[in-house]
Design a protein around this nucleic acid. Structure first.
Length: 501
RNA sequence: GGGUGGAUAGCUCAGUCGGUAGAGCAGCGGCCUUUUAAGCCGUUGGUCCUGGGUUCGAGUCCCAGUCCACCUACCA
């Protein structure tokens, strides 16, 4: 292996074998030929009048004089007439390339083009005999020669290694992927607009933190050379957003990346996008209302309504989520009783463990009694709930940092929103008593190596307004709304294990 | 960590009972002036993941390893 590599010529991927080198050589030959013809194969400025997708699908009319550009994604060679598709993320438009229309000189240039090249086409629009909106090429401009072949035009990129590491190839080849990301981009922009319309200010707070706080998670560690100090990538923006509320930002949000040093799975990427929003003088029930409005707004605007259909790659319907309002609200204990028996909370801890066996819920001996109940909740309620449920009346053990309910101090003023078998968003009535907050944080820090953020506690002593707060896992929300079965399909460059070199 | 499945042409995939490697796409050559997975004729292209083993003979069976996907566990 090593010898082969050292003897190989200046081929960028000698290991790919002889066949690929042949394909590469053909494209290099055409590159040279373009230069002989006095054409810069890597183009330059090209002013377009339209993008391919909108020209074909929105504003098309016959007889327009247009200049469009895109990547050649299909070539249908009929001899003296060729039909080619020019594509980008906006869509595609067909160009009609005819030797007589183009002239012999430009035709010779055209003959050096391949699928994958970027091309500008100028000419009149017309409809072909089959009714396809097209541009009759009068002039062509080479914008970039592609020196490597694209994936199979029909099956697209299937290899997950290529799909995620070389996302650009996936985006060129797979309409499903393009659609996921167009929707994600539109939805994220709409979330910002939705909150801004309600008077929320978007801010950016530190991702490099001295004391990582605001969530229970293991952080990534890094180091600042000039300051000579270890630092952490944030696990949540919460403690900084609350400082801003102390400073008078009464409606504030941040929509950006957080980092958690944990396992990777279908639902977990080590860096993920989260929305956190805080609303002064509100409580968790108003936050629930806000989330419900927001998610329904997105569904109606980008998913065609409140029935969200999930389909697999073959287009078969796999799941339907009904977001019709109002969303169900149910107390934690009631949900447990409905799946584990009305007598669940009357049982002894030992009896509850025995019941888990009957229910097929796996538990481990080290679990506390409330964790046994939580396990039942996760397996039999959360994972099986497709339509939205706001889980309320949550026991305080599960959310130790939340504000206690005024009437029942075994509960906290929190909701947990479950959709599509996963927690999408928690909402809180925020704790703003600095003494209670200190107590909780110090207690939490006692068991872990976690430090207490003294600057945050100091800020609270100056007075943070009462407030409601929410977090929304944006990646999981997008998965739910688009039907993506893995987080990798809606994160442009998901984290992968390093490839062995 | 445990389990299941997978790795064959540049891409997407077949490969029967163990008998000398196949298709479509892409490429190359030819025909074709309204096609759209264009079509037709011809053609190039292989370390069947790696290393052992069984066998007259291994893509195929056995063992070990590497990588990938999914499930599960851990973490929270």
């Amino acid at each position: 292996m090593t010898e082969d590599l050292s003897q190989a010529p200046a081929d960028p991927t000698p290991a790919d074998g002889q066949e690929l080198s042949t394909l590469l050589a053909h494209r290099r030959q055409k590159l040279d030929r373009l230069r002989e013809l006095g054409v810069d194969p890597f183009g330059g400025k090209y002013e377009t009048t339209h993008d391919p997708g909108p020209l074909r699908d929105e504003v098309f009319a016959e007889g327009l004089h247009v200049r469009v550009a895109g990547r050649i994604t299909a070539m249908r060679d009929m001899g003296k007439t060729n039909f080619i598709d020019l594509s980008d993320l906006t869509g595609r438009i067909q160009a009609f390339v005819n030797q007589k229309e183009l002239g012999d000189e430009a035709w010779e240039i055209y003959k050096q083009l391949d699928i994958g090249d970027w091309l500008g086409v100028e000419g009149e629009t017309f409809l072909t005999k089959t009714g396809e909106p097209s541009v009759k090429a009068k002039r062509i401009t080479v914008l970039s020669k592609s020196l490597r072949p694209l994936a199979d035009k029909w099956h697209g990129v299937q290899d997950p290694q290529i799909k995620y590491r070389q996302r650009y190839l996936d985006l060129v080849a797979n309409e499903r992927s393009r659609d996921f990301f167009r929707k994600r981009i539109a939805m994220v922009a709409e979330i910002r607009r939705f909150l801004q319309d309600r008077g929320f200010l978007e801010v950016e707070t530190p991702m490099l933190q001295d004391v990582p706080g605001g969530a229970a998670a293991r952080p990534f560690q890094t180091h600042h050379n000039a300051l000579g100090m270890d630092m952490y990538l944030r696990i949540a923006p919460e403690l900084y957003l609350k400082r801003l509320m102390v400073g008078g930002f009464t409606r504030v949000f941040e929509l950006n990346r957080n980092f958690r040093n944990e396992g990777i799975s279908r639902r977990h990427n080590p860096e993920f996008t989260m929305l956190e929003a805080y609303w002064a003088y509100a409580d968790f029930e108003q936050m629930a209302q806000l989330v419900e409005e927001l998610v329904c707004h997105l569904a109606e605007k980008y998913c065609g309504g409140l029935l969200i259909e999930h389909r697999n790659e073959d287009g078969d319907l796999t799941k339907t989520i009904n977001l019709s309002r109002p969303w169900r609200r149910a107390p934690y204990r009631e949900l447990i009783r409905s799946v584990a028996g009305d007598d669940w909370f009357a049982l002894s801890p030992a009896e509850r463990r025995a019941r888990c066996g009957e229910l097929g819920v796996e538990i481990s001996p080290e679990m506390e009694d409330y964790e046994v109940t939580q396990q039942v909740f996760e397996k039999l309620v959360e994972e099986k709930s497709i339509d939205p449920i706001f889980v309320t009346h949550v026991p305080k053990e599960l959310v130790p940092l939340a504000r206690q309910n005024a009437a029942d101090d075994s509960l906290v003023d929190v909701y947990e929103l479950i959709i599509n078998g996963a927690e999408i968003s928690p909402g809180y009535s925020e704790l703003n008593d600095p003494d209670v907050q200190r107590e909780r944080l110090e207690h939490q820090a006692g068991g872990e190596t976690q430090k207490v953020d003294e600057d945050f506690l100091l800020a609270l002593e100056y007075g943070m307004p009462s407030a409601g707060g929410i977090g929304i896992g944006i990646d999981r929300l997008i998965m739910m709304l688009t039907g993506a079965e893995t987080i990798r399909d809606i994160v442009l460059f998901p984290q992968l294990k390093r490839r062995d070199g």
